[in-house]
Simulated scan of single mutants.
Amino acid sequence: MTRILLACGISAGPWFLCVALIQGLTREPFDFTRNTISQLSLGELGWIQVSSFVITALLAIAGSIGLRQALRGAPGGTWAPPLVAVFGASF
């Protein structure tokens, strides 16, 4: 189970970037040089980016649980998991 949770954490970043890249390239007025990725959450297809934020958050939080299990008693095991969880919650 720990490996699955760690894999979730590892996949959070690529998932977010892939969804944002696909949306940014397919939505007509969007320009990566002028717009932020969070602006993709606006408009008719905004639900896709909002869902991406939620899924990324859940993956990062799952990764923090995996880190807690994997780093139990090791250096970094005290602070790394909560910091990754806060990062996930910020999404």
Rank of each mutant, 00 (worst) to 15 (best):
M1E: 08
M1W: 13
M1V: 15
M1P: 10
T2S: 06
T2N: 06
T2L: 09
R3M: 14
R3V: 13
R3N: 15
L5A: 14
L5G: 03
A7Y: 14
G9W: 00
I10R: 01
I10G: 00
I10F: 04
S11A: 10
A12N: 02
A12Y: 01
A12D: 00
A12S: 08
A12K: 02
P14C: 04
P14D: 03
P14S: 02
W15N: 04
W15D: 01
F16D: 09
F16K: 11
F16P: 02
L17M: 14
C18E: 07
V19T: 04
V19L: 02
V19A: 02
A20N: 11
A20E: 09
A20V: 13
L21M: 14
Q23P: 06
Q23Y: 14
G24K: 05
L25P: 06
T26R: 15
R27E: 11
R27F: 12
E28H: 14
E28K: 13
E28T: 12
P29T: 15
F30D: 00
D31R: 14
D31N: 14
D31H: 12
F32M: 15
T33Y: 10
R34C: 14
R34L: 15
R34Q: 15
N35A: 05
N35L: 05
S38A: 08
S38E: 06
S38P: 04
L40A: 08
L40C: 05
S41C: 11
S41G: 12
G43E: 09
E44T: 14
L45N: 11
W47T: 11
W47Y: 13
I48K: 02
V50A: 00
S51K: 08
S52C: 11
S52D: 05
S52G: 04
F53N: 06
F53M: 07
V54A: 07
V54S: 05
V54L: 07
I55E: 05
I55F: 15
A57N: 03
A57D: 03
L58R: 07
L59R: 08
L59A: 06
I61Q: 01
I61V: 13
A62R: 05
A62N: 04
G63D: 03
G63H: 05
G63L: 04
S64A: 09
S64K: 00
S64P: 03
I65W: 01
G66K: 03
L67A: 03
L67I: 05
R68M: 03
R68Q: 02
Q69H: 00
Q69K: 01
A70Q: 01
L71G: 00
L71T: 02
R72Q: 10
R72A: 08
R72L: 08
R72F: 08
R72H: 13
A74R: 15
P75C: 06
G76A: 13
G76Q: 11
G77D: 09
G77K: 07
G77F: 10
W79E: 08
A80G: 07
P81V: 08
P82M: 09
L83Y: 00
L83H: 00
V84D: 00
V84W: 01
V86M: 02
V86G: 02
G88N: 05
G88S: 07
G88E: 04
A89R: 04
A89T: 10
A89K: 10
A89S: 04
A89M: 08
S90N: 04
S90A: 05
S90R: 07
S90C: 05
F91I: 10
F91T: 10
